[in-house]
Amino acid sequence: MPFIEELIKYKSCSIVGLEKNTGKTECFNYVLQRLPLENKRVAVSSIGIDGETTDQVTKTAKPEIFLREGVYFGTSEKHYLMKRLSAELLEITNENTSLGNIIIGKALTPGKILLSGPSSTNGLRRWMDEMKKYDIDLTIIDGALSRMSLASPTVSESMILATGAAYSANINTLVQKTAFVVQMINLDLTSEDNREVFNDIKNGVWAIDEDDVIHDLKVASSLSININTDGLKKCKTLFVSGALTDNFINHIRQNKIFNETEIVVRDFTKIFLTPMTYNSFVNGKRKITVLQKSKLIAVCVNPTSPNGIVLDSEKLCKTLSEAIKLPVYDLRTKAVGF
């Protein structure tokens, strides 16, 4: 499969599902089976619990995570003891979860395991830092539920997106919704100058005017829309450090100052816009860009949903691939859309 070659170019990858039961774990196993372990050190973990045999919410059968010999992993104490493989215990970290501290282990034989990694994005980042001492070449993170935040470039350099019938039962809607997420992931990076200016700003909304002067708009977050535009004639660039919401966009769209504004957000996980709002804002002169970007390596689909709906795999792959201009894989039927 071609995307494995692409994947090993990066130090870290997160697998994100747009909905439960979109085939994340299957995708995870698929990747793990095909990685060239003989010359790459691979570590795996998840955010929250993963790899359970039945889905905790829908009670449908779920694939277990299968590790190969030599893979490093991070899981909680409880699940370490339930592992179905021989493993060397390398370290008990100070990272806490409700299932005990996170343990770093190394698989000595192939076998099955439940992964329950750090439960927060920050915890995950600390865990990845801790793994550095084992000279890991590639870290793969399995996401739980539809948690997007771990796909943030601050956590992982690349990502694989899993989508499927569980996200929407209608091929057209599914394609539309997925394509929009992909569009957000692939937003352009802002200019280098902007990155330098905004990278260390942790909060607030900031504007750059025509003369390259920076204004603090005195907004605690973009959830409050009372922005102070005193002394600002025309805004060239607007940096929103937190979440970018429909409400905020609709508010500034009315304001002539922002007629030709480039909105910069930290990364795509900060964007909470409906396609309608996004499209109404972005035109030839207005755009949205990001400070950091992670590489979308592939999109995988699961045409089956837990309530029994089965979509036409080949048609789904083909339509989606056309919409996002990226290869789409159904890992079970091996259907591919280019």
């Binding site: 089976q33 299968f66 190969r68 010999e69 179905r84 021989s86 493993a87 060397e88 215990l89 000595l108 034989t109 192939p110 076998g111 099955k112």
Partner: peptide
Amino acid sequence: FYIYDSYSEELASLRKKLKEKDVY
């Protein structure tokens, strides 16, 4: 730490068998 192969020859040989195939 792990239950080292050197604790038991039987264990060592079984683990070898496990490693031969990349399936559970």
